[in-house]
Amino acid sequence: MKALTIVSYQWKDLFRDKWLIGYALIYLVLTDALIRFGGGGPKALLSLSNIMLLFVPLVSLIYGVLYLYQSREFVELLLAQPLDRKSLFAGLYGGLTIPLSLAFVVGAGLPLFYTGVWIQTGFGTVATVFGLGIALSLIFVGVGFLFGLKYFDERVKGFGFALVSWLFLAVLYDGLVLLLVSTFSAYPLEKAMIGLSVLNPIDLARIGVLLEFDISALMGYTGAVFNRFFGSYLGFVIALSCLVLWIAVPAWRGLNLFNKKDF
């Protein structure tokens, strides 16, 4: 109950912050421009998904780290009240992930709604893209909190690790996987590829987008492997479970660190 009170106050506080409104506006302008100049309909939504796969993790990570650093005195004030650390952590986590997710959904959703693209592409596809965007927000705010708590007194380090982890997962990881595939092209790598893809939440979300838009064939052999595995019921359940784990593990580990932290 107290966690909800913290969420509502954080919510109010963040919405007064022009930064969050700016974040929503960026999505609004981008989505509107993609619909007008990017071919409209499913093409625009696919382009939006690709932007989302890079932009949502970056913003969530940075904001997750900075938010903890900026809330230090506020956390101290609240911990001096009869309040348990678990509720406070839940309040802080919810107080950031809910406004961030909402900014993304409203910013990107409004142009899809007023141009009627959501009808053209189908509600299911739009819901999948937004669902993946929200999942990425939850995952990377959790990871940001982890870095923020781990390097609570070394802000540059915390911020640096957050940026490097984004660079690794969003950019370098695929390059490394590609290198692996080309180096060991003589060997059967299907299982290894699937294993590697679930280790990176951005890749998991990307596979979700590929399957939803039915464009995995564009990726040739790899796409066929993903399509065969993740397109099956078992594959879908495994992918979804991995995403849930990716949300739960950083948040749980963050809570553990928060419980032991000296403020």
Partner: peptide, 23 residues
């Protein structure tokens, strides 16, 4: 506390009400 720092966008009235709700 030694140096009181609070959420910047919060109003004084809101801060007081918030702590009342917390306690």
């Amino acid at each position: 506390p030694q140096m009181a720092q609070y959420p910047e966008n919060m109003k004084v009235r809101e801060l007081i009400d918030f702590i009342i709700q917390m306690r």
